[in-house]
Every structure is written in structure tokens, then in C-alpha cells.
Design a protein around this nucleic acid. Structure first.
Lengths: 342, 342
DNA sequence: TCCTTTATACTCGATTCGAGTATATCAAGG
DNA sequence: CCTTGATATACTCGAATCGAGTATAAAGGA
């Protein structure tokens, strides 16, 4: 049951900027209220709270026509966001209701993603109060055909074209690597980070490293949001750091889909095994091995036949399945297995 | 590589209160600013931000003498916390510096845990501005012997005695279950939640469900913090919802230790395999199978011999090992494996 | 010397995983 | 009607991993 230490790293090997600012050794020398202030040794910090602007940001994902999509506002330039108000009992409840009223579809999955509060997020503001963004990741079933007043959805590969490896190396990868290598200037440390994040020089591609790849490109000045004057502009830009938040959401979703049956939150009520596989492939940006995919899904008894078949495609009709929600959710999630129990 | 859908649930089967307030159907009927306000359809929420009090809270864990400990203030009644100030570039950096100055030991691991903002956290405050607590989980090496001015450390099983299953069923479990069953009143839904969280009626104990267990006891009125008049008081109480935050931290750590080598962030520079095992056992609250534990650790090449041995114990001297940090962090973290790649 | 204690090494069967191959069943076209 | 192409579904096989148990080595103490 207990499998201590799966694979290495996680906090090591240079974490992303906003997750652990190893790069900002300079910041340690800055005026630091947590240090400059004479701390009462055994009291921790004092109990006064600071004031801040607070907002909610949602990364809402769906899959339509084998393409992963994200809900946007402002012509695709921003993620939906709103003020954080004080009358909610729960952030989750309010957010869920709002999303359902906007999309017309229930949100099957919603969880907190990350709270962004670094002061270099919006360099313009020099006001004392800082902006805090509490972001959430949500999964929505295939939305209705876009009509008037419908929220906008954009394929997320518009923003991260290099994340789609379903048809092999994506177009533009060569230029990205060229830009990164130029920035690295044969610095072995930087070259190693590039190899690691983009699976170069014999290292495997790791679909989870969405954020690391974005941060690397950001550092290298390949991202317009970085404020670079003449950035080559890989992928479609977004307002502020919304693209970073989206990258965080995609990374979380790709990691989560491996140990929790979240993909069903995006599927319609009944679906074929190939539709399910295509959805997962869209989310992780990879092609999967069909026979093994099928084996894994049904040996875990996640689904059951509806008894019907579909004749949409040209070949042999496929059986339709439905997610066994009640059964799956009721049974003991053994969780990630620990190594050994005595 | 890609292993879609490990085990079931995750968002289902009744999530903890603060993570998804399924229980508060009532809240949906409340005045809801995200709904009551006429929303511009395609604009999401508006862009104004709300104001809030913001604070940082740290869950700092260490293991001393095979006991898992947590740093506290205020005589063990609270987690260290402090105001959120606006001059930091990164929350992480400031927090790390502060912790290191307080404990005298480097923080090997620090990551954001959760942002708590539900309005039922502090029922007293009726001010407009809400309190937001951004919590972090950190791992610290064994602290120096407690002296004057040193921060306090408490064994976390003082707060959650039922989480320590290293010596079999913990004392008091029977009373807890009795209390829970009384609250359930043969409601099959509640009984099932109890079985699931506490591994009853044939279900296995899942060490990761720290938060679910706490929430269940909270709902059942077995936790003094719930405001129950004559609560039986299982485990030592804490201020406000600090115990819930601690439970969140323990749950995260127990989950993380299974797929990331975080245990080494708590170990001294050189250690024996048994010391490593005892540390992991302390954190997950279970006994592990010794031969298999050793096999897993060294077949992953996480450690290397120092060449020295120890004669602390009575029997055969054990070899001392050190964590191969550089090697482990440099190599490709294949991450959690996806099912299959073509 | 013998016994206890701890460390370390090895074995075995069951299960899972990656990868590949074989067969079934439809639609369309000659 | 029968071939062809396309898709669905089923089966095989070796390698790796996992849970569980057993055996041997090296110390200290009686």
C-alpha cells in the first residue's frame, strides 16, 4: 500500500518562478518585513493581518471535438475572474453556481489551484495593498454550440502550441529550442534545464512540466508577457499573468488525470472507449496505446455498458459506456499506493 | 508512461467541508454576490477586486525521536502566522527566510498548501472585509534541543491521536467510532462515510484521509473547535481552524511522500536505512515492511553509502547513507506514470 | 560460547505494464 | 455478393514491480 518515494525531484531541480523563487537571491537582500521587523521569538509573526485586493480566477477546461479548450473573456485575452466578496460561506459554492449559470453546464470538478500574490505580478501598481488572486481549476462538460451571449472558449493549444505532441513534434518547437539555446549561451545549468523541461538529449518528454516549460521560455524572453520589447511571441499572449495561471491549471490537470478519474467529468453521459481515449489524449497532449488504455479502464471497473452502440464512424459500431459514478465514488480510494505495509 | 485513472474518487464521495461544501446546500440559497449581481455575460465577473485581510500560516513539520512534530506558538494552541505584507517579491522567499531565522535550520521543502477563506471560519467578525489565510507546508531538519527562545514543537499526534497506527489501533479509537455512530443514527450515508474514512467494515485504512476524518468528527460534534458545548474533546484543540489547517498539511505530506523523495528534507545529512524508515513511518503513521522498504529505496538509487557505520544500537552496526540530492534532482522525474504511450 | 538484537541479502508467486498481434463487424464499392 | 477499408474488441508474451516471507551476517551481553 505504501510506496514511499516514487520518482525523484518535485521540489528540486529548480522549481518554477512563482512556486519557489530560487532565482531571486536578490530578493533576500531586500527590505523584508518578515525579517526587518523585530520578531518576538516565540510568538511567530504578530497577529495583525495585512490588507490586500483579492480576486478569484477560474481555469475552466472542456474538450470539444478532440480539442482541449479553456473558457476566456475579453476576446480570448483573459481568464474569467471576479472580485472576492465577503458574504460567501464557501468560495467553492459561489464559484460553482456562477460557472453553471454562465456555461449552462454543471461543473463536475472544481478545486483550488494556487494563490498568486508575488509583487512582480503587476509592476504598474505601486499602491500599498497587494493583489491576491485565488485561482480554481474546473472541468465542464462539452458546452453547447456557441451562440449569442455564450462564454468564449479557446483551444488551449493556441496559447501553448508546444504542448500538443499528439502528432509528433509540434510546429515551432525548433524555433523555441533555438531561442532557448541562444539564451542559455552554453551555460550548462541552463542547458540542463532545457533538456529536462523539453525532453532533449535523450531525456523523455514529461507532459506534466507545462509550467516549467512556460517559465523557462518566460525567463528566456520568448514570452511577450515578460515585457520583452521584441519578443518572438510563441503562442497567443494573455493579459497579465493569466497565461501562467492557465499553465498551472493544465499542469495540475495532467498530473491529476493519472490517479483520479477526472476525465469523466468532461465526458458526456455516454461515450465510446475511443472517445474517452481521445479526450484524455487531448488533455495530456499525447497519443496513447489503444489496447492498454482499454484494459486499464475496464479492469478498474470505472465504466459499464449502456447496451447501445453507435454508428457515427465508418467502421464497426462501438459500444457505448457510462461512468459508474456511484460505484466508483463509494468504493475505497486506495489512493496512491504506499510501498509496503506489515 | 501514461497511466490514466489510478484509483477512484478524489472529488467524489463527499469532499471535506472547506474543499467542497456539498453539505451546505443551504448556502446556495443565500444572497450570493456572484449571482445576484447582474453579470455581463461575456465579461465574466467584473474586474474590481474585493478587499480582504490576508495572513500567512505555516505548517512546519519535523521528526525527532521517531515522533512527527509541528511548530507552534502560543503554548501549542496555534500555528505560526503573520501578516501578509506587500513588499515581498515572493511569499515563498520571505517565509523561508523567516522560518530559517526562527528554527535555525534550513527549510528543505516549502510549498503552498491551501488558501482558506470561507466566511464561517471566524463567526465573530461581521466586518465587511474577510480574512484570507494562505497556508504553507514546510519540512525542517531535526531542530536543535529546545532552549530559551526556541520555537515550540509539539508532537502532532497530540492533536490527532487517532492518526498514529504504528502500534495498531490507537487508544481512543473505539470512543471516536462510538461518537460517530451515535451521530450517524444509522443513516446509511453517514455510516458509509465513517466506514470509508476510518477503514471500518472491511474497508482498508487509508492514511491520506486525515482531513476527511477530522471533518467527519467536526461534523459529529466531537471537536471542541466546532463550538459544541460539551464536546468530548478528542485530541488537543487549537485556536480557530488551525487544527484543520494542520490536518490539511499532514494529509498533503502523507500523499506527497509516496511519489516525491521529500522525506530526505527532514533527515540529517547521514542516516541509516532504519532511521529513514522510522521517519517515514512517523509521518504516515504506519509500520512498513522492512525488506521491501530497503529494496525500494536503493533500487531507485536515491541514496549512497557514506562508508561509515554506526554503533548506536545494540545489534549489528548499520551502514550510514546520504541522500544523492544532486543526482536525484538532476535526473528526469518521470513523474507519476501515465498509462501507455505509443 | 550462546543468545539476543539489528542489519542485510535472497526467494517466490501474483499482479501489472509496455508492446505487439489477431479477430470481429460494420459501410461502401465493384 | 464479395472484397476492401476502417474501426472495434480480444488475446498473448516477456519484463518489471510488489507484497510477503525467509535466510544469513555481525555486533553486544550473559
Amino acid at each position: 500500500m505504501v510506496r514511499v518515494y516514487g520518482s525523484p525531484s518535485g521540489m528540486g531541480g529548480r522549481a518554477p518562478r512563482h512556486l519557489d523563487a530560487t532565482a531571486s537571491a536578490a530578493a533576500r537582500l531586500d527590505a523584508d518585513p518578515l525579517r526587518a521587523k523585530p520578531l518576538e521569538k516565540t510568538k511567530g509573526w504578530n497577529v495583525t493581518t495585512g490588507f490586500a485586493h483579492a480576486e478569484l480566477i477560474a481555469v475552466l477546461a472542456a474538450v470539444t471535438g478532440d480539442e482541449p479548450r479553456v473558457m476566456t473573456v475579453d476576446a480570448g485575452k483573459a481568464l474569467p475572474s471576479g472580485p472576492f466578496e465577503s458574504s460567501h460561506r464557501s468560495l467553492q459554492v459561489g464559484l460553482r453556481d456562477w460557472i453553471e449559470s454562465q456555461t449552462g453546464h454543471p461543473v463536475g470538478f472544481l478545486e483550488q489551484l494556487y494563490t498568486f500574490a508575488d509583487s512582480d505580478r503587476d509592476p504598474g501598481s505601486v499602491t500599498g495593498a497587494r493583489r491576491i488572486s485565488i485561482s480554481y481549476l474546473g472541468l465542464v462538460r462539452e458546452q453547447a454550440a456557441p451562440g449569442a451571449g455564450q462564454p468564449e472558449w479557446h483551444g488551449w493549444h493556441e496559447y501553448f502550441p508546444w504542448e500538443d505532441r499528439r502528432e509528433g513534434d509540434p510546429a515551432g518547437l525548433a524555433q523555441i529550442l533555438q531561442g532557448l539555446r541562444g539564451w542559455a549561451e552554453s551555460d550548462p545549468d541552463r542547458d540542463q534545464r532545457i533538456d529536462f523541461a523539453f525532453g532533449q538529449n535523450g531525456l523523455p518528454w514529461n507532459e506534466d512540466l507545462v509550467l516549467q516549460r512556460y517559465e523557462l521560455m518566460f525567463e528566456a524572453g520568448l514570452i511577450p508577457e515578460a515585457g520583452a520589447p521584441e519578443a518572438p511571441a510563441f503562442g497567443r499572449p494573455m493579459q497579465g499573468d493569466h497565461r501562467r495561471i492557465l499553465a498551472t491549471g493544465i499542469a495540475r490537470l495532467r498530473a491529476k488525470i493519472k490517479y483520479r478519474p477526472v476525465a469523466f467529468e468532461i465526458m458526456p453521459d455516454s461515450f465510446t472507449l475511443l472517445q474517452l481515449q481521445r479526450t484524455v489524449e487531448a488533455l495530456v497532449g499525447l497519443r496513447l496505446h489503444k489496447p492498454n488504455f482499454r484494459r486499464q479502464v475496464d479492469q478498474q471497473e470505472l465504466i459499464e455498458e449502456t447496451g447501445e452502440t453507435t454508428t457515427e464512424a465508418r467502421g464497426r459500431p462501438a459500444m457505448l459506456f457510462r461512468y459508474r459514478r456511484a460505484v466508483v465514488e463509494a468504493r475505497a480510494l486506495s489512493g496512491t499506493r504506499l510501498p509496503i505495509k506489515v
